[in-house]
Amino acid sequence: MAPLLSVEGLVVDLPVRGPTGRTHHRIIDGVSFDVAPGEAVGLVGESGSGKSLTLRSVVRLLPEGAEVRGSLRFADADVLTMNRKQLNALRSSGVATIFQDPRAAVNPMRTVGDFVLEGPVRAGGRNRDEVLREALGLLTDVGIDRPEQRLRQYPHELSGGMLQRIVIAAAILSRPQLLLADEPTTALDVTTQSDVIAILDEQRHERGLAMVFVTHDLDLAAAICDRTCVMYAGRIVEDQLSSTLHDAPQHPYTAALVAARPVLDIDAGCELPVLRAIRGRPASAYEAPSGCPFEPRCNHAEPACSATRPPEVNSGCSRVACFRASELRGILALEVETHA
């Protein structure tokens, strides 16, 4: 089956105003991944690794002056060469984005109804009444009671959880084929997080939507995504089925991430969970060394690692960029296990 979204060799340079005038920093450095129709792909990695920018590249919502290279195809159309109109069509009906913080993403000065209807009506050109009817149904589906009244309210009058459900409903309302969700629950309080995730997952499945889901949470990614891509310094270092990523990480970075996540050990009783931090500091693409970007922090690095960039190697349904991937396979699995 042809992929719905195909990203190949995506490179993004962002302008920075330095002391010596305007320069560019490389932020995304050769990212490739595919999303099949109906498939959910997780994007994980430390802060600053470029997850959000990758997502924004898909709908070309990059900062002013960004330079983009590579290939970005959605439903066989070349996104990077689209004109304004095609781009707006892509954004209004092909791809819908769900942002991290619903409070920031919804205009505080307009009613919720304005927000919900604006997309399909103004951008999608659909009939308002029809959209409204559909919206009311959708809102009920995502667990909003008295939806008519909600639509008349202002964002500050609703709770964050409620607002994010509305954002999800609004995203679905535009009948997209692909959802881009950038940490959609991080800004919410813990009790509502799982509700919102559940709703998102349910709606996606019901409509067979593809999704790219950005998160820090490996477990969450594993739970709702078919595949998970691990990003480091503007690259995808590992791309695996979510089901196996956990137990059989192929990249030392993935293994370190898995090991570093907080796990509440029931057997340990009242003891605090052990957190194993990854030593060193995450690097951005432009500051990464010329060899393997993870080499300075890697416990398994060899001199060869710092010489050249490790290529992405496909094996079966997975892909990894590490020179020592095959030799380390067993060791990494062990590392993860001792921790768990």
Binding site: V59, N88, S92, T97, F99, V106, E118, G119
Partner: peptide, 14 residues
Amino acid sequence: KEHVRAARSRGLAS
């Protein structure tokens, strides 16, 4: 602001 970016992401005309 994020909400402006959000509005853009929904394909609204400039």
